[in-house]
Amino acid sequence: MHNIVTMARRELGAYFLSPIAYAVAAVFLFSTGLAFGLGTFRNGAESSLRPLFEFWVVMILVFVLPMLTMRLLSEEFRAGTIETLMTLPISEVEVVLGKFFGAFVFYLVLLATLLLYPILMSIYGPLDVQLLICNYLGLLLLGALYIAAGLFFSACTNHQIIAVLLSFALLALMTFAAEGLAQQVEGWPRAVLQHLSVRMHFANFVRGMLEVNHLVFFLTTCGAFLFLTVKRLEMRRWQ
């Protein structure tokens, strides 16, 4: 536990010391701001944040979060710091969880900036706080899943660019393509693709519905990616 906190603090510190994190934050703020300003916050539009959360934020996260996670492990491999790290009394699980939470806390900072939009909306009408909490819970779970997947791809390669591209591809597939692909096939592949469709699970949170099976989907998938990352890290030692 102690080691996880130490690792997470270092990763978080590395974000704030590197220009990439600021660039990522700028892209996130700019694009969400654009989506809000042009899509939601205009005369005659429905007073709802649903389109923003349901589509725009998710799409932006598919591109933004891999940029945050790409360096987590591949940078250690490339610079060789993995050698000094893994010869300390720290386990693979602690390293992976520490890096995961480091990125997750940075993600929380990004999410906090999104609060600006509901606050702006509340000037014009009453705010559904319960719905907002539900939306945020969904975003937390979605982000955790994306970060875990990005961390896994970062553990697969020494090249940050390859890690980020693989993460884009998988996240885009799971988030946007799975639903459409499911319509093209029959039987069990359809069931699998539908189950893997991140947007389908996420949509329930946006609508304000809390259902256990969707919660379980995010937690198990996130856990599976973290597990694979640990295994991948252990495997590297044997190569």
């Binding site: 590395a14 060789g80 710091t81 010869t87 009394p89």
Partner: peptide, 30 residues
């Protein structure tokens, strides 16, 4: 690992950290 201090060949370090921060980080993990 608790009993060994190791300096690898290429001296890999985290470039963005300050020396004191780095040593403190390593000490925490130990």
């Amino acid at each position: 690992r608790r009993r060994v201090g190791y300096l690898p060949e290429s001296t890999p370090l985290y470039p963005e950290m300050r020396v004191r921060e780095y040593l403190d980080f390593r000490g925490r993990l130990r």
